[in-house]
């Protein structure tokens, strides 16, 4: 349904997208996972048509996305910003934003009522949006993107700054939309969200996709190894040097910075040996955490840094 080929976009010297390629099938929910600055919003903005001056191409439903304006009717966008009129009520907002698409006038009111029901706002549809809570506004923001029943829904961090209940509601909505056959790309830096919601996950950093697949496929990338996170008082170089001869002996250095490092170990039996090497070199360890393989471990392995960095 959607094929992105070698998209490249830079802001001055900063490369936001670096020959980015991706495919999405009908009904697939793709979680685009990456830290801040990975290029997620740039990708969504290009697909939404609000960014220019890039190279590469995008085919949507077999047509060039940027030369066929009618394709905009087949695509729904949920931006990170709460982009609607706060002084209007939810129903009027839906009628306005829906009216910008080629939805038949007669269908528009009916669809607005349906979508308000879906996002659990029908009881407050006549109330000015400025009175809504953050979670309700997020749900309305999402509803606007769905009103015209798009074939592709792009959501840019749709759960930012809302409470758990609202987050669950939005993620549930995304799952339902996917199940109904709409292709979904949603960006986030929340691991739990993609683990629970997406049929496929793509990990991106510095404008490129590092790996993609189902959750199980991605975890296989780090093997069965546990992740050991060590905090202490040491320099990155000294830490790496202390463990250099353990590389290949069931210990893999994932990342090392001053006072913090991450290792993948095939067996937790290797941990005393690791600590012994560090103590011998007089490198103080203040904390040590062992994690079983998960998406965060995958991310760490692929990017060499935590998603929170």
């Amino acid at each position: 349904m959607l094929e992105i080929k070698s998209l490249t976009k830079s802001y001055g010297d900063v490369l936001a997208l670096d020959h980015f390629s991706l495919e999405l099938k009908k009904g697939e929910v793709l979680g685009l996972l990456g830290p801040n600055g990975a290029g997620k919003t740039t990708l969504i903005s290009i697909l939404a048509g609000s960014l220019r001056d890039f190279t590469g191409g995008v085919s949507f439903l077999g047509k060039d996305l940027f030369s066929d304006r009618s394709l905009k009717n087949r695509m729904g966008i949920v931006p990170q910003d709460m982009a609607f009129y706060e002084e209007l009520n939810a129903a009027d907002n839906l009628l306005f934003w829906g009216g910008l698409y080629d939805v038949p006038r007669a269908d528009l009111k009916k669809r607005a009522a349906e979508i308000l029901e879906m996002v659990e706002l029908s009881g407050r549809s006549k109330e000015p949006v400025k009175n809504f809570s953050g979670g309700m506004k997020r749900r309305l923001n999402t509803a606007i993107g769905l009103l015209h029943k798009p074939d592709l829904l792009l959501l840019d961090e749709p759960t930012v700054g809302i409470d758990v209940q609202a987050k669950v509601s939005i993620l549930d909505l995304i799952r339902k939309v996917g199940a109904a056959g709409t292709g979904v790309i949603f960006t986030t830096h929340q691991l739990a969200e993609v683990e629970d919601t997406c049929s496929r996950i793509a990990i991106m950093d510095r404008g490129r996709i590092l790996a993609q697949g189902t959750l199980v496929e991605l975890i296989r990338l780090v093997g069965e190894k546990d992740i050991v996170e060590i905090t202490g008082e040491f320099a990155a170089a000294a830490f790496s040097e202390a463990l250099v001869d353990l590389d290949g002996d069931g210990v893999e250095l994932l990342s090392a910075s001053d006072n913090q490092a991450a290792l993948a170990v095939s067996d937790t039996d290797r941990i005393p040996k690791i600590l012994d090497r560090l103590f011998r070199r007089k490198l103080a360890v203040t904390d040590l955490k062992i994690k079983t393989p998960n998406l965060e471990a995958v991310f760490l392995k692929l990017t060499g840094r935590s998603l929170r960095d």
Binding site: S45, A48, G49, S50, R69, S70, K72, N73, M75, I77, P79, Q80, D81, M82, A83, F84, Y85, W97, L100, Y101, D102, I144
Partner: peptide, 13 residues
């Protein structure tokens, strides 16, 4: 506040 960007994602010219 992003409304302009959102408007331009629609078929609006």
């Amino acid at each position: 506040d992003g409304k302009l960007r959102r408007m331009l994602t629609t078929p609006l010219r």
